[in-house]
Amino acid sequence: MLKIRNGRDFVGGVTMICVGLLFIWFGRELEVGNSFQMGPGYFPTMLSLLLMAIGALIIVQSLILHAGEGEPETWNWKAYILVILGPVGFGLLLSGLGLAPTMLLLVVGMATASRYANWRHSILLGLFLSVCSVLLFTKLLSLPVSALGPWIPFIGELF
C-alpha cells in the first residue's frame, strides 16, 4: 500500500502539477508551432509540461522518503491576513484618500499584526511615516500622488 510519508512534499508536488495545468489551460489559445517555427505557446507549454513532470517526481519522492524532523510549524493567521491585505488596501485607497492618510492607515493597521504593538506607538509611527513619505515622495521625488486626495474635502484642496 502506498502511503504519503511526507505530506508537505506531497502537497508541493500536487501544487506544481496544478500550476502547470493552469498555465496550459490559460495558454490553450496560444499557437504552439513546431521546434523550427516556435509559436508563442511553445516555450510556456513545454515548461508547463516539465513543471508537471517535476511535480510528479516530487510526489513520488514524498511517497518513498520520510520527512525529516523539522521544527514544528507555527501559524499566525491574523498576521498573514493583515500583512497581505495591507498593500491591497493601500492600492485601493491611494488615489481617493491621498498618500498621507493611506500611509497612516496602513502603518497603524499593520502594526496590529504584532503582539507587542501598542496604539500610541503605532499612531506616532504612522504620523511620522506619512509626513516623511509625503516629503520624500510627493515633494522631493514628485510622484504623481497628492498628500491628501479628493475624498478628503476642504483640507485636501489646500494642498
Binding site: 496602513l106 511615516l129 513619505s133 515622495f137
Partner: peptide
Amino acid sequence: YHLLFPAIIGFCCIGAYSINNSVFDVF
C-alpha cells in the same frame, strides 16, 4: 520589530507604486 515591519511594508507599497506610478504593481 513591531515598529520596523509596518515601516518596511509602507516603504514597499510606495516603492511598488513608484515603478510605473500605478497601483497595479502594488497588487
